[in-house]
Deep mutational scan, measured.
Amino acid sequence: TELRLDINGREIKVDGADKETLKELLKLAEKNNDEKAIRIIRHLLER
């Protein structure tokens, strides 16, 4: 399955993203107070 998050109005594919990319996405999600995106990205970073 493909995991996509809508961050800042942009749909971004997050599964398969490297750790650096995920960290950047996490910063974006935190800036937007997007709890769902934050939770998902943190979960991916823990893998």
Score class of each variant (00 low, 15 high):
T1P: 08
T1V: 08
T1A: 10
T1S: 13
T1L: 08
T1G: 13
T1H: 11
T1N: 13
T1K: 05
E2D: 12
E2C: 12
E2Q: 08
E2V: 06
E2A: 05
E2Y: 07
E2S: 09
E2G: 07
E2T: 05
E2I: 12
E2F: 09
E2H: 08
L3M: 07
L3F: 07
L3C: 04
L3K: 02
L3Q: 05
L3V: 15
L3H: 11
L3T: 08
L3W: 05
L3D: 05
R4L: 15
R4H: 13
R4I: 15
R4Q: 11
R4A: 11
R4D: 06
L5I: 14
L5Y: 03
L5R: 01
L5T: 02
L5A: 03
L5E: 04
L5H: 02
L5W: 03
L5G: 03
L5F: 11
L5P: 02
L5C: 05
L5D: 03
D6V: 15
D6I: 15
D6N: 15
D6M: 15
D6P: 04
D6C: 10
D6A: 10
I7D: 04
I7K: 02
I7A: 03
I7F: 13
I7H: 05
I7S: 03
I7W: 06
I7M: 06
N8A: 13
N8C: 09
N8M: 11
N8F: 06
N8L: 07
N8Q: 05
N8T: 03
N8R: 02
N8W: 04
N8H: 03
N8V: 04
G9R: 01
G9F: 04
G9P: 01
G9H: 04
G9E: 03
G9Q: 03
G9C: 05
G9I: 03
G9D: 05
G9S: 01
R10N: 13
R10V: 15
R10F: 14
R10P: 07
R10S: 13
R10E: 15
E11L: 09
E11N: 06
E11D: 08
E11V: 12
E11Q: 09
E11K: 05
E11T: 09
E11Y: 08
E11W: 14
E11I: 11
E11H: 08
E11S: 06
E11R: 04
I12G: 02
I12A: 02
I12M: 06
I12F: 15
I12N: 02
I12H: 14
I12E: 06
I12L: 05
I12W: 15
K13H: 12
K13T: 13
K13R: 11
K13G: 06
K13L: 15
K13C: 07
K13I: 15
K13M: 14
K13E: 13
K13N: 13
V14S: 02
V14A: 04
V14F: 08
V14N: 01
V14C: 03
V14W: 04
V14K: 01
V14T: 03
V14L: 10
D15Y: 07
D15V: 06
D15G: 06
D15T: 08
D15L: 09
D15Q: 07
D15M: 06
G16D: 08
G16V: 15
G16S: 13
G16R: 13
G16T: 15
G16P: 15
G16H: 09
G16Q: 12
G16I: 15
A17T: 13
A17E: 12
A17W: 09
A17S: 14
A17R: 11
A17H: 09
A17D: 13
A17G: 10
A17C: 05
A17K: 10
A17M: 09
D18G: 05
D18H: 04
D18A: 05
D18M: 04
D18W: 02
D18S: 07
D18N: 09
D18C: 04
D18R: 03
D18F: 03
D18T: 06
D18Y: 03
K19W: 04
K19G: 06
K19A: 09
K19I: 14
K19M: 13
K19N: 09
K19D: 10
K19H: 09
K19S: 08
K19Q: 13
K19L: 13
E20N: 08
E20H: 08
E20S: 07
E20W: 07
E20G: 08
E20A: 09
E20R: 06
T21P: 01
T21L: 07
T21Q: 14
T21N: 07
T21I: 10
T21D: 03
T21C: 06
T21K: 13
T21H: 09
L22W: 02
L22G: 00
L22Y: 01
L22M: 04
L22A: 00
L22S: 00
L22P: 00
L22R: 00
L22K: 00
L22V: 01
L22N: 00
L22F: 02
K23C: 06
K23V: 06
K23T: 08
K23S: 08
K23N: 08
K23I: 08
K23E: 09
K23F: 06
K23R: 10
E24W: 10
E24P: 01
E24D: 09
E24F: 11
E24G: 09
E24A: 13
E24Y: 15
E24L: 12
E24K: 13
L25R: 01
L25E: 01
L25Q: 01
L25F: 06
L25D: 00
L26Y: 05
L26W: 03
L26V: 02
L26R: 01
L26E: 01
L26Q: 02
L26S: 01
L26A: 01
L26F: 04
K27P: 02
K27W: 08
K27E: 11
K27A: 11
K27V: 12
K27S: 07
K27N: 09
K27Y: 12
L28G: 02
L28Y: 10
L28R: 05
L28V: 11
L28N: 04
L28K: 03
L28T: 05
L28Q: 10
L28H: 08
L28D: 07
L28E: 10
L28I: 10
L28M: 11
A29E: 00
A29Q: 00
A29M: 04
A29T: 01
A29N: 00
A29C: 05
A29V: 05
A29I: 01
A29D: 00
E30R: 13
E30Y: 12
E30N: 06
E30D: 05
E30V: 12
E30M: 13
E30A: 07
K31L: 13
K31I: 11
K31H: 10
K31D: 13
K31Y: 10
K31R: 12
K31A: 14
K31T: 08
K31C: 05
N32H: 14
N32S: 14
N32E: 14
N32P: 01
N32G: 14
N32M: 14
N32V: 14
N32K: 05
N32C: 06
N33D: 05
N33C: 09
N33K: 09
N33P: 02
N33W: 07
N33A: 10
N33Y: 07
N33V: 05
N33L: 08
D34A: 07
D34P: 00
D34G: 01
D34Q: 04
D34N: 07
D34W: 08
D34S: 05
D34K: 01
D34M: 04
D34C: 05
D34V: 03
D34R: 01
D34I: 03
E35F: 11
E35Y: 12
E35V: 13
E35K: 10
E35C: 13
E35P: 08
E35S: 11
E35I: 12
E35Q: 11
E35M: 12
K36N: 12
K36F: 11
K36P: 10
K36C: 05
K36W: 08
K36I: 11
K36Q: 10
K36D: 10
K36L: 11
K36A: 11
K36E: 12
A37T: 05
A37H: 02
A37S: 09
A37K: 01
A37L: 08
A37Y: 04
A37P: 01
A37D: 01
A37V: 06
I38S: 06
I38R: 03
I38P: 00
I38F: 04
I38Q: 08
I38H: 02
I38A: 11
R39A: 11
R39K: 09
R39I: 10
R39T: 11
R39W: 12
R39N: 12
R39F: 10
R39C: 11
R39V: 13
R39L: 12
R39Y: 10
I40N: 03
I40H: 04
I40E: 05
I40V: 09
I40K: 04
I40C: 05
I40P: 00
I41N: 00
I41C: 00
I41V: 03
I41T: 00
I41M: 02
I41A: 00
I41Q: 00
I41P: 00
I41L: 12
I41R: 00
R42K: 14
R42V: 11
R42F: 07
R42W: 09
R42T: 13
R42S: 09
R42M: 13
R42H: 11
R42D: 02
R42Q: 13
R42P: 00
R42N: 11
H43P: 04
H43R: 13
H43E: 14
H43F: 13
H43N: 09
H43M: 14
L44R: 02
L44S: 02
L44W: 15
L44V: 06
L44I: 09
L44F: 14
L44T: 04
L44P: 00
L44A: 10
L44H: 10
L45C: 03
L45F: 03
L45D: 00
L45W: 02
L45N: 00
L45I: 09
L45Y: 02
L45G: 00
L45H: 01
L45R: 00
L45E: 01
E46I: 08
E46K: 10
E46Y: 10
E46F: 10
E46A: 09
E46D: 13
E46L: 09
E46N: 12
E46G: 12
E46M: 07
R47K: 14
R47C: 06
R47E: 15
R47V: 15
R47I: 14
R47F: 15
R47P: 14
R47M: 15
R47Q: 15
R47G: 15
